[in-house]
């Protein structure tokens, strides 16, 4: 803690006119870990693609052009968006990958956010309230954990009809136990600490203790797990879409694009290759960012990045 404080004052002295803003500090800490910096930059690009891509490129990604059927990559004569080649119906692959980013990100984000909120809420309840409710919640998590998550998703999705909503629902349910168990374990520990005991003695309400004293302490852990889990959920969604029970055409995701390219493997490898590469790069960035967050969000470890930032900057 003291390390952080001193480095803050040092920086404030360097630039006395304005205090160090939160954003600048985060960027400086990212800069200290070059890999994490690149990863964050890449993810930013993907998020921008997901948000704005379909708005501008939807038409281009859906327009078939039989003359550009399975057009090979690295040729610019058909325009920039054919640089990665064209698919079986002559649609530019780059545009399709950008448009598909939206569904891929939306499903993963939806599942992660839903499972994180539900899981940590249940975890807070299980850790903070009486033994009986806690036990019941934990047994529920055991049921979900007792079976491989993707297998469970496959079975349930085959029985429900595959749609984006069902996909998010199934993925969220399979991921809830992760947050539930972490939150509960952390709550049980944090609850014993002095500041929580002090708040209880001072007569703070349960609501206040949970949200003002306990949640802020465990939030960094949850966010780190969520980043890592985002990668896992993305891979799961791709696998399901690949198996044909995730997103259905004409909607597209990266996993579905790989699956559609599979039948042209012998003649046009690039159909399945590029979307797969997009998946790998995104999950890899998330993994890198998650290990950076593990350090950056931990007050006793953070100095490693801040010292590094100063040395480099």
């Amino acid at each position: 803690m003291t390390m952080t404080d001193t480095s803050d004052t040092v920086r404030a002295e360097e630039d006395p006119a304005k205090p160090v803003s939160g954003l600048r500090r985060v960027i400086a800490m990212l800069w200290a870990d070059k890999l994490a910096f690149v990863a964050a930059l890449f993810l930013l690009v993907i998020v921008l693609c997901a948000v704005f891509g379909p708005m501008f490129l939807q038409d281009m990604a859906a327009k078939t052009n039989l003359r550009a059927r399975n057009a090979p990559p690295f040729e610019l004569e058909r325009g920039f968006f054919f640089i990665l080649g064209g698919d079986a119906l002559g649609r530019p692959l780059l545009a399709r990958i950008i448009v598909a980013a939206q569904n891929t990100m939306m499903v993963a984000a939806g599942a992660v956010v839903a499972s994180m909120i539900i899981g940590s809420a249940l975890g807070l309840i299980a850790g903070y309230t009486g033994r009986w409710v806690g036990e019941a919640i934990m047994r529920l998590a055991d049921v979900i954990m007792s079976f491989p998550s993707l297998l469970l998703a496959v079975i349930v999705l085959y029985m429900l009809s595959p749609s984006i909503a069902n996909l998010v629902l199934v993925l969220a349910i399979t991921r809830i136990p992760i947050y539930l168990r972490t939150t509960r374990a952390e709550v049980l520990e944090v609850r014993q600490r002095m500041f929580v005991q002090a708040a209880i003695v001072m007569g703070a309400s349960n609501f206040r203790i949970v949200f003002k004293h306990i949640l802020p302490v465990i939030l960094p852990t949850l966010l780190t797990i969520a980043t890592l889990d985002f990668a896992f959920v993305m891979l799961a969604e791709s696998s399901l879409s690949f198996l044909g029970i995730g997103i259905q055409p004409p909607e597209i995701t990266w996993g579905l694009m790989v699956s559609q390219g599979r039948q042209y493997l012998t003649s046009a490898w690039w159909l399945a290759f590029w979307p797969g590469l997009a998946i790998i790069l995104t999950t890899m960035s998330l993994n890198l960012l998650s290990s950076w967050m593990r350090i950056a969000l931990n007050p006793t470890q953070r100095w490693r990045l801040e010292i590094g930032a100063k040395k480099n900057g």
């Binding site: 990668a231 891979l235 791709s238 696998s239 690949f242 996993g255 790989v258 699956s259 390219g261 599979r262 493997l265 012998t266 490898w269 399945a272 290759f273 797969g276 998946i279 790998i280 999950t283 890899m284 998330l286 993994n287 890198l288």
Partner: peptide, 22 residues
């Protein structure tokens, strides 16, 4: 190990088929 942990298995399978079988 980072690449290995990030790669989707179905994609590796497909690339493997292209390289080693096709």
């Amino acid at each position: 190990s980072l690449i290995g942990a990030s790669a989707p298995d179905f994609w590796i399978a497909i690339v493997g088929i292209v390289v080693f079988s096709v």
